[in-house]
Amino acid sequence: MIAEAIASLLIVTGAAFVLLGSIGLVRLPDIFTRLHGPTKATTLGVGAIVAASSVAAYAVNGDISLRELTIPLFLFITAPVSAHLIGKVALKDAAARRQN
């Protein structure tokens, strides 16, 4: 019962953070600020949803499964790499626009 309540809270929190990241993606003014928005969706959003999945599996089976946590681990490792590459593309794009 308590585990189910915790899982419900975690899943709604995570989904709210995913929505927040997309709102940031739409409303922020330029690409360098827009890079900041969806990071909330990758870290807190997916992290909380996966934690909710882990807690719900504990409520059903009675044993804690930690293999779900490889998803946020992978995202935490790859998010800086893709953000760096998108930043490089944006810099090159801005430089090309300034020349024209």
Binding site: G21, L25, G45, V46, D93
Partner: peptide
């Protein structure tokens, strides 16, 4: 710009995971 669209595709992948 193109980086905006790449960022949107990356975010779509994250939303799909969720």
């Amino acid at each position: 710009t193109m980086p905006d669209r790449i960022l949107a595709l990356d975010t779509l992948a994250i939303d799909a995971i969720a």
